[in-house]
Design a protein around this nucleic acid. Structure first.
Lengths: 250, 250
DNA sequence: TACTCGTTTTGATCCAGATCAATCAATGAA
DNA sequence: TTCATTGATTGATCTGGATCAAAACGAGTA
């Protein structure tokens, strides 16, 4: 595969690392298999990077959509808020994940994206991405897969919100985080939450008190250890069996 | 716009109507603006149609993904089912809507799609769609918007499942159906449900008994009239105020 | 006509999680 | 250091919707 060739050349690696574009695009495009020339083309695509302070908006509902954003470092939440002030967190995004797909439909952002910590993103002008992908079918395909994956993810959340009880929801959430941290080279069993209990609760459809109580319960059972935002998963198997246990009583 | 020219020619219309491809693609592509030649090209795309009997699968979780499906007539539900037998309805699809987007990510269908009544679909081979869209940027853009719209829709459901109470959920659901029927030229205030109380409940995250009770309650308040699957919306304004009313008590 | 099966409605009871409330810990500003 | 603010934990109580149960209805079909 041409990609491996280009990667095995450490000159190329240096180039990639020094460049924001390739750096975030690696996450987006790596499974695809592009040659050096194609990576070159892509470097143009996402050349602008932006730092976002903790608590600041990356984009706001209603603002004009022009770019997707790849998280380079840090993390974000996306949320909808209704007229009456209710806020629903619809997702958490960490390094390498892509934000802004919801904006394509109306050319207007359909949610708020807020940094959970000081973060950095690469801006990917959407029109440019479309243009380039016309001549790079593998990039186009990869992009379609990313959009589709977002749909599948959302449907997973619907399953969680529609049918699970509190303990199952939190277990699912923790295991999901664990998997994502480990995929990024961090510990799967020892990590710090970037979000508050209230944000977790909003995402999981429960009140912050219930989140806290459920953490405590799992801790009593020695499945996890909780110290404020610091989580240790002591027994990943038992945590896994928590999911879907309730109706397994048959 | 070239599209209007082609449409105003009734010979073209006859051609389009006689042809499954254009027929469903009209729904998909009409806002885009294509000329006759482009419509010609598209006709190739979705030439195969398929009839699905009520209760039969259009596709099943795990089966190989190759095509998207445009609903030509009838309606479908999509659902996930877990090992333990729990079933979560993730969406209802009616004429002109596009099914199968979840399959792109893994090249495997990630949900079941089941006909709610005898229905007909157009099959749209996905690879072909990608190829054609390379030379038809407006088609590519339209496709991206459709995918994005699905993401926005799913996030709306997350909002519903995460934060609303039973009455708000059902009101939201009815108003959504109403809008979709009316967009298709049917009455916005008088229609027949295609799904059971149980399916509605699964989609809205509540039990069928609660769905029934909530229907009854809205009927007592003279906001709607329910006769089995037949729904009349008598007071669309009051139904609208049901959404988000609960926390408007401030 | 009666019988079956799936769906819907309605009633009675129960409980998971919401709500209300108090306390405690961590962080940061004055 | 003290004070203020924000987030987390824990307890006590309440309630919306789940669960259990029964009856009614409608569409087939024998």
């Amino acid at each position: 595969m041409s990609l491996n060739n280009s990667i095995s050349n450490h000159l190329d690696i240096a180039q990639i690392k020094s460049n924001c574009a390739a750096c975030s695009l690696r996450e987006l495009c790596l499974p695809v298999g592009l040659n050096e020339q194609e990576i070159e083309i892509l470097s143009d695509l996402a050349s602008r990077k932006r730092k976002i302070q903790r608590g600041r908006y990356l984009h706001q509902t209603g603002s004009n959509f022009q770019s997707l954003f790849a998280v380079r470092s840090g993390s974000f939440k996306t949320c909808l808020l209704e007229e009456d002030g209710r806020q629903q967190v619809t997702g958490f995004y960490m390094t390498g994940e892509l934000l802004g797909l919801d904006g394509i439909s109306t050319e207007t952002h359909n949610c708020d994206a807020i940094a959970l910590e000081d973060s950095e993103v690469c801006e990917i002008p959407f029109t440019k991405l479309q243009e380039i992908s016309r001549s790079l079918p593998s990039l186009m395909n990869q992009f379609h897969k990313i959009m589709s994956r977002e749909i599948v993810r959302d449907q997973g959340v619907m399953l969680l919100l529609g049918g699970m009880k509190a303990e199952e929801r939190l277990a699912t959430f923790l295991l999901n985080l664990s998997r994502r941290f480990s995929k990024r080279g961090y510990s799967a069993s020892d990590f710090n939450l970037r979000m508050t209990r209230e944000e977790i609760g909003s995402y999981l459809g429960m009140k912050l008190e219930t989140v806290s109580r459920t953490f405590s319960k799992l801790q009593e059972e020695k499945i996890i250890a909780v110290d404020n935002k610091h989580i240790q998963i002591n027994d990943i198997d038992r945590l896994t069996t928590k999911i879907g246990k309730s109706s397994c009583a048959l």
